[in-house]
Write a protein that binds this DNA or RNA. Structure first.
Length: 595
DNA sequence: TAAGTCACG
DNA sequence: ACGTACGTGACTTAT
C-alpha cells in the first residue's frame, strides 16, 4: 500500500472490524533497537495489507511517510475498544513504544494460544501455520538470508516484503480462528489463557520496558579483583600440573588429571569422555591438591565471564538500565524464561556471588523490595496430595524440613540434628523432582539401599504423598498429560515411549510439572494482582524482575512502607489452597540487601 | 554447531 | 536389564 486513499479504506475497515490481526516489520529483532519498516493488517482470511514505511533498498518505490501514517493510525492503535490479535504482540508493543505509541486493545496473542494448547511444541508462526493450517509460509530467512550475509528487513524489496508481511498478519488471524475455539472448549485452558497468560503478557511488557539499574563501576571493580585471583589460581594450577594448559578446556584438563597425573576417573560424560565436573572435582579434592584449585578457578571464571564482565555491556545506553527479555512461551511447565541477559540466574549461593547481586541497585530515592513465596512447591505438594501430616505441618507453620526429619528418623523435632535436617531437605527436593533411590543416593553420597530405606520411611509417614505420586503417574499414562491446580496442561508424549529412559523421564516430568507449574501459575497471578494494585493506586513502584518464586520491585521511598505491608498479603492471597501461602519480604538499597 | 560445565529456582 | 532428580540460559572450547 503506497497511497493515502487505500490507507483510508483500510482505516475504515479496521475501525469496524471485530478483530484485526496486526504485525510489524522492523530493522532489528532486538525490541529496544527495532524501528518500524512496515506494518501489516488483516481483517478477514485472505484480506490483508502491508504498509511499507521505512524500506531503504534499491528500487524502493515512494512510500507513505512514516510519521504521518503513524499519526493517522495512532488513535486506532491506542484504542482499547479496537481489538487486535497478533503473534507475540509484546514485541510489536515495544516497537510501537519506540515510536511513542502505546499499543492497546490487545485481545489475543496466537503465541500464547499455542503455548496454552501445546506448551511442549514449537510456537514459531511458520511451525504453527504448518501444524494447524497445513500451510507452508514464506520464511524470514528466505527474505533476509541468515548468518553473516543476513540483511535488514528494510533492504528487502517492497513487493517481496509485502507478500511476506501481509501473509503473517493473515496467518495470525487464521490461527486465532482455529486455536481460540479449541481453548474456549476447555474451561481449564480458557482460564489459564484469559486469567493468567494474557494479563501476564501486559505485565511482562511493562517489566521489560522498565529494566533494572545496575552499578557498572562496582562490577568493573569486581571483574578486576576476580581477574587477579583467577591469574593467581592459574599459576598455582600450572605448578601442580607441571605444565601450563587451558583451565577452561575440559578436554585439556582431563588429559592432565587422568592421563598425566593418573587420578582416578569417577564418571563419564554423556559423550563417554572422563568427566571433570564439580561433583567429580569435589570428590578428587579429598585426596589431591589440584582439583580444589580448579574448583575455585571454575567458580570465579564463571562469575567474571558471565556476570561481572558481561552485565555492564548489557546496559541500554538510552535508558541506562538493563532490559532482559522474558519469554512467556519457552518453559514447558509454565515458568518464564529470561534471556539477553538472563536475570533469573544471578548468583546468590556463594559470598562472591552475592557481591554481584549487590550491584543490582535502586536509583536515588528508591529501594529494592524482594518478596518470595516460602517453600511454595512443597506447599503445593501438600495441597495436591492432601497428605494429612504434611498439611498439618504447614498449618502449624512448622519448619517443614525439620518436621520431615523428625518423621523419618523417629525423633522429636527439637532433637533433629543439622545432618538429619539436611537429609530431609534433600528428600523433600527429591520428591518434587520425581526422584529415584539412585538419584537420592547419589545426591546424599549414600548406598542406594540406604536411600531406599529413607524413601520407604518417608512414604510410610506420608502415605498421602505416596498415593499422590502413584495417582499422577497413572493419570499421565491414561491421559497423556498432567495439569496444574489452575488447569494448565503439560503434554507428555514420551509417557508411551518404548524407550525405558524416555518413558521414565516423562514419569518424573509428570510428577514435577503439577508442582512447578502451579507455582508458576501462582506467581503469574501475583504479578497481575500486584500490577493492577500499583496501577489502580497510582503508585510509582514498578515490578522489575520475577525469579520463579520471587518478585523484585523498585519502590520510591514515599511508597516503601505501604508496599512492604501490602505486597506479601496481595501475593499470598491470589489463591486459597489447602495450605497457607507464606510470603517473605525484604527491602534495601540493592537486591542483595533486600534478601 | 555440539559438548561440557555451571549459574539460578 | 536399564539409566537415573525437574525446569531454564550462557559461557568456553573444539570441531
Amino acid at each position: 500500500m503506497l497511497d493515502w486513499s487505500t490507507l483510508e479504506t483500510w482505516l475504515t475497515r479496521i475501525k469496524t472490524a471485530a478483530l484485526t490481526a496486526l504485525d510489524t516489520e522492523t530493522t532489528s529483532l532486538d525490541p529496544f533497537a527495532a524501528r518500524l519498516v512496515g506494518l501489516s493488517l488483516a481483517t478477514a482470511p485472505g484480506q490483508a495489507c502491508y504498509i511499507p514505511l521505512g524500506h531503504a533498498g534499491p528500487d524502493t518505490p515512494a512510500q507513505l511517510p512514516l510519521e504521518a501514517v503513524l499519526a493517522r493510525l495512532k488513535p486506532w492503535l491506542e484504542s482499547d475498544r479496537h481489538l487486535k490479535v497478533g503473534q507475540n504482540l509484546k514485541y510489536d508493543q515495544h516497537v510501537f513504544a519506540n515510536h511513542g505509541i502505546a499499543l492497546a486493545g490487545i485481545a489475543h496473542d496466537t503465541l500464547l494460544q499455542s503455548y496454552v494448547l501445546e506448551s511442549d511444541k514449537g510456537h514459531d508462526l511458520d511451525q504453527l501455520a504448518s501444524r494447524h493450517l497445513g500451510l507452508a509460509t514464506l520464511a524470514y530467512a528466505d527474505l533476509c538470508g541468515k548468518g553473516a550475509k543476513q540483511i535488514g528487513f528494510e533492504q528487502v524489496p517492497v513487493p517481496l516484503a509485502a507478500a511476506y508481511a501481509a501473509e503473517d498478519a493473515d496467518i495470525s488471524l487464521r490461527l486465532h480462528q482455529t486455536l481460540f475455539p479449541r481453548i474456549e472448549a476447555e474451561p481449564g485452558l480458557a482460564r489459564v489463557y484469559r486469567d493468567i497468560e494474557m494479563p501476564t503478557r501486559e505485565v511482562l511488557f511493562k517489566m521489560e520496558r522498565a529494566g533494572i539499574l545496575i552499578d557498572a563501576d562496582l562490577l568493573a571493580q569486581q571483574s578486576h579483583e576476580l581477574g587477579q585471583k583467577i591469574l593467581d589460581l592459574e599459576q598455582r594450577a600450572f605448578a601442580l600440573a607441571g605444565q601450563p594448559f587451558n583451565l577452561g578446556s575440559p578436554k585439556q584438563l582431563a588429559e592432565i588429571l587422568f592421563a598425566k597425573l593418573g587420578l582416578p576417573v569417577k564418571k563419564k560424560t554423556p559423550g563417554g569422555a572422563p568427566s571433570t565436573d564439580e561433583e567429580v572435582l569435589t570428590e578428587l579434592a579429598l585426596d589431591y591438591p589440584l582439583p580444589k584449585l580448579l574448583l575455585e578457578h571454575r567458580s570465579l571464571a564463571k562469575l567474571k565471564s558471565t556476570y561481572t564482565d558481561k552485565l555492564p555491556r548489557m546496559i541500554n545506553p538510552a535508558t541506562g538500565r538493563v532490559h532482559t527479555h522474558f519469554s512467556q512461551a519457552t518453559a514447558v511447565t509454565g515458568r518464564l524464561a529470561s534471556s539477553e541477559p538472563n536475570l533469573q540466574n544471578i548468583p546468590v549461593r556463594t559470598e562472591a556471588g552475592r557481591r554481584i547481586r549487590a550491584a543490582f541497585v535502586a536509583p536515588a530515592g528508591c529501594s529494592i523490595v524482594s518478596a518470595d513465596y516460602s517453600q511454595v512447591e512443597l506447599r503445593i505438594m501438600a495441597h495436591l496430595s492432601g497428605d494429612a501430616r504434611l498439611l498439618e505441618a504447614f498449618a502449624r507453620g512448622e519448619d517443614v524440613h525439620r518436621a520431615t526429619a523428625a518423621e523419618i528418623f523417629g525423633v522429636a523435632p527439637e532433637a533433629v540434628g543439622p545432618e538429619q535436617r539436611r537429609v530431609a531437605k534433600t528428600i523433600n527436593f527429591g520428591l518434587i523432582y520425581g526422584m529415584s533411590a539412585f538419584g537420592l543416593a547419589r545426591n546424599l553420597g549414600l548406598e542406594r539401599s540406604a536411600a531406599q530405606t529413607y524413601i520407604d520411611r518417608y512414604f510410610a509417614r506420608y502415605p498421602g504423598v505416596a498415593r499422590y505420586m502413584e495417582t499422577i503417574r497413572a493419570q499421565a499414562h491414561r491421559q497423556g498429560y498432567v495439569e496444574t491446580v489452575f488447569g494448565r496442561r503439560l503434554m507428555l508424549p514420551d509417557i508411551k515411549s518404548r524407550n525405558v529412559g524416555r518413558r521414565q523421564g516423562a514419569e518424573r516430568a509428570a510428577i514435577n510439572a503439577p508442582m512447578q507449574g502451579t507455582a508458576a501459575d501462582l506467581i503469574k497471578l501475583a504479578m497481575v494482582a500486584v500490577q493492577n494494585w500499583l496501577s489502580a493506586a497510582q503508585l510509582k513502584s514498578r515490578i522489575v524482575l520475577q525469579v520463579h518464586d520471587e518478585l523484585v520491585l523498585e519502590v520510591p521511598d514515599a511508597e516503601l512502607m505501604q508496599v512492604r505491608q501490602q505486597l506479601p498479603d496481595l501475593m499470598a492471597g491470589v489463591a486459597r489452597l489447602a495450605v497457607p501461602l507464606v510470603v517473605e519480604v525484604g527491602a534495601g538499597p540493592n537486591w542483595e540487601a533486600a534478601h
